[in-house]
């Protein structure tokens, strides 16, 4: 009897075990697949397509059918393009001029905040962070007004400082050059953009460094204090060395972000790059080549060259600071 009742059960069990092992094998892939599908569509495809596109001559408004394979011509053409090289030097200038001061200000500021009155620490950190989460376009529009030649508040302030009796000894020398045409004269455009970018992002670094400082044990400072170290000494001999991994991380972010600047120079120069393309970054040149001058193939080639630039700069940074930056964590 027992045997008979076993018979109909046997295939059912094997079916369910088979399904069980099937779903054990497949289900994980099924569950992870949305990521891969979305990544393939929105991540992988554009990367592969832009590489393919960089080898083509294509005017987008004539439709997909008009692509023409031209090999590396886009790249060789860019190598001899004065505007491309100008955009590279512009980008490097702005990246450096806005990036370095960000950290030079953020580190001491974070240190001062962590050691200062704790009641003000969080409101102040939040205030510094605010520009980072504000729309870059809105910020740029406001700065455009601030940088105005005749009616801009920056020039008005400088004119006041140059003429007021109490500050003339310091600022009087610049009266000759006022008002400064911040956004109209080529030599001033990059500094103007750098000021904006510095202001917008140093708060982000303050937050990073504040977090980094929180991980440094208080004991070190106490021990140093007992040994008679000044605040200056504890900053240079305790804070800076132990903050190195965070500095390394923050600088990496700055390099990657600053080399891809687009919104700020785009708005400040009215979308043109300014006099003599003095404010045209690589990302802007890419956009204008593709969408204004309709040379999509060249634009794709620029994007790959920009990728190379970002990669190279990051590698250089890793090579020089990476080991020392990461070692101290051990």
């Amino acid at each position: 009897m027992a045997r008979r009742s076993d018979v109909p059960d046997a295939p059912r069990r094997s079916w369910s075990t088979r399904f069980d092992s099937f779903q054990r094998r497949i289900a994980p892939y099924l569950f992870i697949s949305p990521f891969f599908i979305l990544f393939a569509i929105f991540g992988l495809f554009p990367i592969v397509f832009s590489m393919y596109l960089s080898l083509q001559d294509w005017n987008p408004i004539q439709g997909l059918g008009t692509m023409r394979y031209i090999g590396l011509e886009n790249y060789t053409w860019l190598m001899g393009d004065p505007w491309f090289w100008r955009s590279i030097t512009n980008t490097l200038f702005i990246a450096f001029a806005s990036g370095l001061p960000q950290h030079l200000v953020a580190i001491p500021l974070a240190f001062a905040l962590s050691r200062g009155i704790s009641r003000l620490r969080h409101p102040l950190t939040a205030t510094y962070f605010l520009p980072y989460i504000t729309s870059a376009v809105a910020i740029s529009l406001v700065f455009q007004t601030i940088f105005g030649t005749q009616f801009g508040i920056l020039n008005q302030a400088l004119i006041y400082l140059a003429n007021a009796p109490w500050s003339a000894w310091l600022f009087g020398g610049m009266a000759e050059g006022l008002p400064v045409n911040w956004l109209g004269r080529a030599p001033n455009i990059k500094p103007a953009i750098s000021i904006l970018v510095w202001w917008q992002f140093f708060g982000f670094n303050v937050v990073l460094y504040a977090a980094g400082l929180a991980t440094i044990p208080k004991d070190y400072y106490e021990a140093a204090e007992i040994d008679g170290a000044s605040a200056r000494q504890s900053f240079f001999h305790i804070t800076l060395p132990l903050l190195r991994p965070m500095i390394f991380f923050a600088v990496t972010l700055t390099i990657i972000g600053n080399l891809q600047l687009f919104d700020q120079p785009f708005i400040l120069t009215g979308g043109t790059g300014g006099t003599g393309q003095a404010g045209m970054t690589v990302a802007m040149y890419l956009y204008r080549t593709g969408f204004e001058w309709l040379e999509m193939g060249t634009a794709a080639a620029i994007s790959w060259l920009l990728f190379l630039l970002v990669g190279t700069m990051t590698l250089i940074h890793f090579y020089f600071f990476g080991r020392s930056g990461l070692e101290t964590r051990d």
């Binding site: 005017n59 987008p60 408004i61 004539q62 439709g63 997909l64 969408f291 309709l294």
Partner: peptide, 29 residues
């Protein structure tokens, strides 16, 4: 420009401003 590039989604009738007309007149679409 995007619509013409991808071959889909353009309106059936469009208005164009002079500053942009050259690229559409000369380039097609």
């Amino acid at each position: 420009v995007t619509n013409l590039a991808t071959g889909t989604g353009a309106p059936d009738v469009v208005v164009l401003e002079l500053g942009y007309i050259a690229r559409f007149v000369a380039e097609g679409g």
